[in-house]
Each structure stands twice: as C-alpha cells, then as structure tokens.
C-alpha cells in the first residue's frame, strides 16, 4: 500500500519533470535546421541559366555539396572562389558541387558569373521552394549529401578554404 503510493508519486513526478526538462531542452538546444545531419535529403529540381533542369536524385552515388548563395552575400563570394579553384579535382573523385542561387534575377546571376569568372553551372531556386524546404535562413548555407542521399552535415556562415576542402573530402564516396 505504502509502496504503491510511493511508486505512484514517483512516476507522476518523473513524468512531469521529464516533460518540463525535455521542453526546456528543445527550446534552448542549438537550433536544428529543418533538414539537418542524419536526415534524408529531400529531392528537388532546379534549372540553370540556359533552362536545363537537373534533379538532386540524378547524383545518387556521388557526394553532393549544395551551396545556397546570393550575389549580395560577400562570404558566398569567398567560398565560391575556393570552390572554383578545386571543384574539378573533386568532380573526378565523384563529388558534385551544386550552386543554388536564392531567387535573384537571371541577369544578376549571369553578370555575377561573368564578373567573377566562374565556369561552373549556376542554378536558380525560383520561388525559393528549395531553400524553404531545406530551411535556409542565412547565407551561405551548405548541405553535404553523401552517395546514399543522406545529409551528413549542415553548415551556415563563412568558411575558410581549409574547411571547405575538408568538407569536400568527407563527400568522396567510400571515404
């Protein structure tokens, strides 16, 4: 009888404290992205400047580095400089870099490409559909997707060349 009451009180208290603890944990733990490490990367389709469409699913089997960017984002410029220098080496090893612009005009993207001499393809996320799905709020935002289509890392903000390269290394299939 006494024991039963003890167990009853203990379980009621435990449930309530666990609920409060979990709520606080959720509220104050570092913000998790809508799509984050461990999730399956949602498939999407985007077009490049000449209206050719690609899908993320086309790159199953390759590591994919998705870079969300805009012309007005200065950190994006640095990062795209590093990627410009190295992307071809990684492409040979099965790592694809996708540059997705967040819905600026084709003209701006084109001119930006010319101005900085990028020779990779640029894709535009019309209507910000993909950015919304991935929960992109600040730029640059990078998503590392392995050969099985799983997100292995999400990174927001500026990165050094070293950091970009080590991210790309992680994406080499079978590494």
């Amino acid at each position: 009888m006494k024991n039963r009451r003890f167990m009853m009180r203990l379980s009621i208290l435990a449930v309530m404290i666990a609920a409060v603890g979990y709520t606080l944990y959720i509220n104050f733990s570092e913000e998790r992205g809508l799509v984050d490490a461990g999730d399956e990367a949602p498939n999407f389709a985007v077009k490049n400047l000449t209206d050719d469409e690609i899908e993320l699913a086309d790159y199953r089997g390759d590591g994919v580095y998705i870079n969300f960017w805009a012309t007005y984002c200065t950190y994006c410029r640095d990062k795209m400089g590093y990627l410009q220098d190295h992307y071809e080496d990684y492409e040979e090893e099965g790592v694809k870099v996708l540059h997705v612009n967040v819905d600026e005009t084709t003209l701006q993207v084109e001119r930006h490409k010319e101005r900085f001499g990028y020779d990779f393809d640029m894709y535009i996320d019309r209507g910000m559909l993909v950015s919304n799905e991935y929960g992109v709020h600040s730029l640059p935002a990078a998503y590392l997707i392995d050969e099985n289509g799983e997100v292995i890392e999400r990174h927001v903000g500026a990165q050094t060349e070293q950091q970009v390269l080590s991210s790309l290394d992680r994406l080499i299939p079978g590494s």
């Binding site: 805009a70 012309t71 007005y72 200065t74 600026e104 005009t105 003209l107 001119r111 101005r115």
Partner: peptide, 22 residues
C-alpha cells in the same frame, strides 16, 4: 545591354557597388 543590375543599390565596405537584397 544591361551590364549590371542592382535592385537595392548600395556601396559596400570595399566601395564596390552591390545590392542589399532582392
């Protein structure tokens, strides 16, 4: 020909023309 287009023009810290947003 349009050489450059800045929807919301400003000069950035390097004194280069850029846009604040879209």
């Amino acid at each position: 020909e349009i050489m450059e287009y800045f929807p919301n023009f400003e000069m950035d810290e390097n004194n280069e023309p850029t846009t604040i947003n879209r």
